[in-house]
């Protein structure tokens, strides 16, 4: 009752004014957010694009002041670490998502698993580093690129699993059921019929998750660490990688040259990930329209 009275007492002019002000505010909010995004991109491009060159891309990193300084080893290390994380994490996470989608509906255990997946998705990434440190680095006695891969795989796992489950649940149950009715086993029906119908979306979702994980720094700080060497001792020694290199060059180094190198590395990683992101979104959208 009180609220209706309140509405009647609000003069029309005031209501329209409030509406206009709020519309302006929300437009300004969007403008601010987009402006900040462009600002970040522009800083990265302005400071980083000039550093890129053949030496930068193909020479290994060296202490400041030496000639032919590059980040080739860190690029290769990042590729090693990310690919291994994908190999460890994605197939198992895909299987888990399939299992949860098929056997885990309306069951208490299924809901518990779903809850834990969501919790793991929101877990601070630095904790994955701490966990792998306690699990692998303490027991084996050395930091390694592989430990870094494992921590990235832990971050990747719940995202891929959730994407797989969501995608499978989007397929109409009739598709699954009719293939079962034709005498297919569950395994065959899921892999050959259900997953085939969503393979585009599934691949997009998984690659987006990989792209997000590839730029993670915090979990690598205690596991892969960082080194000036080429990553040939991936399993036994600290391994060079781009994110931690950026961290080292910006915080632990006073020299301008190192800052510039850091921006160059930041440029590489940002542009690669953004292009990957845009391309995936574009492909996904084309599919939807077709």
């Amino acid at each position: 009752m009180r609220e209706t009275d309140d509405c009647i007492r609000r003069p029309v002019f005031f209501r329209k004014l409030l509406n206009a002000v709020m519309w302006l505010l929300s437009a300004a909010g969007v403008a601010l957010a987009v402006f900040c995004m462009l600002w970040i991109l522009w800083s990265v491009i302005r400071n980083g694009a000039g550093v890129i060159g053949l030496d930068f891309l193909f020479c290994g990193s060296k202490p400041p002041g030496e000639p032919d300084n590059g980040v080739g080893n860190a690029i290769l290390g990042t590729v090693f670490i990310t690919l291994t994380a994908v190999v460890i994490g994605v197939p198992a996470a895909f299987a888990g998502g399939v299992g949860l989608a098929i056997y885990g509906q309306n069951s208490r255990i299924g809901n518990l698993i779903r809850f834990s997946v969501n919790v793991m998705m929101g877990l601070p990434s630095i904790l994955a580093g701490v966990f792998v440190y306690a699990l692998l680095v303490v027991t084996t006695g050395h930091r390694s690129g592989f430990a870094g891969s494992l921590s990235l795989a832990i971050i990747l796992f719940p995202v891929v699993m959730r994407t797989t489950e969501d995608m499978i649940l989007m397929v109409p149950a009739a598709v699954h059921e009719s293939s079962l009715a034709l005498g297919m086993t569950r395994a065959r029906s899921v892999l050959c019929i259900v997953c085939r119908s969503i393979k585009g979306g599934l691949a997009t979702g998984i690659l987006l998750a990989v792209a997000r994980t590839a730029g993670e720094t915090a979990p690598l700080l205690f596991t892969a660490l960082w080194s000036d060497a080429w990553p040939w001792h991936y399993f036994t020694q600290p391994t060079a990688n781009l994110p931690v290199l950026i961290n080292e060059y910006t915080t632990n180094s006073p020299s301008e040259e190192m800052h510039a190198m850091g921006w160059g590395a930041a440029f590489l990683i940002t542009i690669t990930l953004l292009l990957m992101n845009l391309a995936l979104r574009f492909i996904c959208r084309e599919k939807k329209h077709a």
Binding site: C36, M37, I40, G215, I246, W263
Partner: peptide
């Protein structure tokens, strides 16, 4: 397009935010 642009904010790695925060 504006929604997509906002979503791209989530695609920028956190270290880039840190670097941008520090230097810019």
């Amino acid at each position: 397009p504006l929604s997509q642009a906002l979503d791209l904010l989530a695609a920028i790695p956190s270290i880039i935010y840190g670097m941008w925060g520090l230097f810019v």
